[in-house]
Nucleic acid binder design. Structure first.
Length: 551
RNA sequence: GCACCCGUAGCUCAGCUGGAUAGAGCGUCUGUUUGCGGUACAGAAGGUCGUAGGUUCAAAUCCUGCCGGGUGCACCA
């Protein structure tokens, strides 16, 4: 309907002023109308006419069955009010299927085996899930994947300390580690290894050798040597720990791409293009990003080992082989922005279509309100489970409910309500608050609406003649699909958060003055409440938040 | 040094394909309400949108300089 109206106005512009071009309708402040356009202001100058005159001509010539009235305001805005019926119809449409038939691979979270899941992994998982939901909503076939470093220096560091803790290369002694404490045990090994690497030259050399050994384990598919047995066991412990956390937060990945899987294909690709795209320099193989206004970065180091850059090249190729994607979305922290530009620029040189199909979205850090300085060296980083723990504590205090679905509703909403890009200042008590702009508030709003409906008997949802407070509610409901489309276009779940909260505010105003059950207007109002509850449920689902029937 | 990102009420943030008096929550203050399930409603105070210019009929939004904060710049991931 929106497109029809836009087209209708464009046609008027064409017929009356012989002006070509598209018209965009926006949602103005409800006091002005349901749709508005500033087309008259835009074209008045080239027409050499007064904007209001132009607007008037459009006003006189436009006609559409769903239009109730057209008014002109201010310098030349054209405001359109829709019929009640039209508004109700709009309240029932979903997202435009702009990704229909497309295959999209989303990659996010990307934790490294042998290390802890920190708050950032939690955040990026929530963001990635929601963006994936958005793409699915628009018709895409989405594959969620996860990339992580099961080879590399951090593995060498951890392994070095693990062997030390075991008193030597004794894989059987791993059985003595308490199964519930495996991830903590490995995290402490990483800290120990990192410190040793920096402070102790002998340890540093040993770690470098171990790092190479890990690559060799993969190369020869070594499952039997003592170091290999320790490595594979601990790697699996990591994946078990990741899976447990993801399943707890409702985040599901189709598969992990360990770096060991992408290193080989990346290395081969880089070697195939060395001399053309990549160049040897000081014993390493680099991509001269400077020629493109970017940084020059090392793809193969002096030891002949592939760096992260090359593994990422391998990953892009592998994802394409596995999924034949039309679009690839990679979500990472913003510190990787310039790094990724180099990788994509390099890929563009030999596979331009792959680079073009790739979108890199970056986000900021998660910080605690009144934050403490975190240091990975000391191992006192903000872990993913810490966020959950703080939220659960705050929630029991505020509402006496620390079940996972409330706690996750609180955290997810707090993470998603902000535009992706900047840092998140996470405030546990604000996030679990039952009043204000929070997840639990919306969950409660949903439960309450369902409860109202349970007081009403069977009814057939329908539109009708609305009084002002009823109309405000349908009006708000009618804009939902446009919000969804905007969220899809921008890949910004935050638009939905803002909308959902505004919607609940409009509802509260409506509800303040209107009875639903046992009222002469029960049928009509129940229709609105139902649409409201369904919209809340739909929006919350996109955000990955439970919409409870009862709370 | 170079590159990229950010700077909107006391705090946390919307608003950024330029448009109608810059919005919300928390906090502060004043009323109303204890209502279909308790978190509700009406209102007040609080902003030179970092700063100085530029483009435009119109700039928080686009461009440039400056100031402040963050991040990245060759063998880590």
């Amino acid at each position: 309907m929106k497109q029809e109206l836009e087209q209708a106005i464009a046609t008027v512009c064409k017929n009356v002023f012989n002006h070509d071009g598209s018209v965009v309708l926006t949602h103005p402040d409800p006091q002005f109308g349901d749709y508005a356009t500033n087309i008259a202001l835009q074209i008045a100058k080239q027409l050499g006419k007064n904007p209001r005159e132009v607007a008037q001509a459009i006003q006189e010539n436009i006609s559409h069955t769903e239009i109730k009235s057209v008014t002109i305001a201010g310098p030349g805005f054209i405001n359109i009010s829709l019929s009640n019926d039209a508004l109700w119809k709009l309240a029932n449409v979903g997202a435009a299927q702009v990704f229909e038939g497309q295959i999209v691979v989303t990659e996010y979270s990307d934790p490294n085996p042998f290390k802890v899941l920190h708050a950032g992994h939690f955040y990026t998982s929530i963001v990635g899930d929601s963006i994936s939901n958005l793409l699915e909503l628009a018709g895409a076939e989405v594959h969620r994947v996860n990339f992580g470093g099961d080879v590399g220096l951090h593995v060498g560091k951890t392994l070095w300390a693990i062997i030390r803790k075991l008193g030597g290369e004794y894989p059987e002694k791993l059985e003595e580690v308490d199964p519930n404490l495996r991830s903590e045990w490995m995290a402490s090994a990483y800290v120990e290894g990192t410190n040793a690497y920096e402070d102790n030259e002998d340890a540093k050399q040993a770690i470098i050798i171990l790092n190479k050994q890990v690559y060799a384990i993969h190369q020869h598919d070594d499952r039997d040597s003592n170091v290999a047995r320790i490595y594979w066991t601990c790697r699996q412990w990591s994946y078990d720990y990741f899976n447990e956390f993801y399943s707890r937060i409702g985040s599901g990945f189709e598969r992990y791409y360990p770096e060991s899987d992408t290193a080989g294909i990346g290395l081969k690709t880089v070697q195939d293009h060395t001399g053309t795209v990549f160049h040897e320099s000081n014993g390493a193989v680099v991509f001269k990003g400077e020629e493109f206004g970017l940084h020059t970065r090392v793809f193969v180091n002096g030891e002949g080992l592939p760096t992260y850059e090359t593994k990422d090249v391998g990953l892009i190729i592998k994802k394409q082989q596995d999924y034949q994607f039309d679009r690839s979305v990679i979500i990472t922290g913003s510190e990787q922005l310039q790094y990724m530009s180099v990788v994509l620029k390099a890929v563009e040189q030999f596979a331009p279509e792959l680079a073009r199909a790739t979108t890199h979205i970056t986000h900021g850090l998660v910080k605690l309100q009144g934050g403490v300085k975190m240091s990975s060296r000391k191992g006192n980083i903000l872990r993913a489970v810490d966020i959950l723990e703080y939220a659960a504590q705050a929630s029991s205090k505020v509402s006496g409910n620390n079940e996972d679905w409330v706690v996750l509703g609180a955290v997810k909403y707090a993470f998603l309500r902000q535009r992706i890009g900047g840092d998140i200042i996470y405030d546990p008590s604000e996030s679990v608050s039952m009043n204000g702009n929070s997840g639990p508030y919306l969950q409660y709003a949903h439960a309450r609406a369902r409860s109202i409906l349970s007081k009403v008997g069977a009814f057939e949802p329908s539109s009708g003649e609305y009084d002002p407070s009823e109309r405000d509610l349908v009006q708000k409901l009618s804009t939902y699909s446009d919000i969804l489309n905007q969220a899809v276009m921008d890949l910004l779940p935050s638009h939905i958060c803002t909308y959902l909260y505004e919607l609940s505010q409009v509802f509260n105003r409506f509800y303040e003055n209107n009875h639903v059950a046992n009222d002469p207007r029960e049928q009509l109002r129940a229709s609105l409440v139902l649409r409201y509850a369904d919209t809340l449920a739909h929006g919350l689902r996109v955000l990955g938040i439970t919409a409870p029937e009862k709370m």
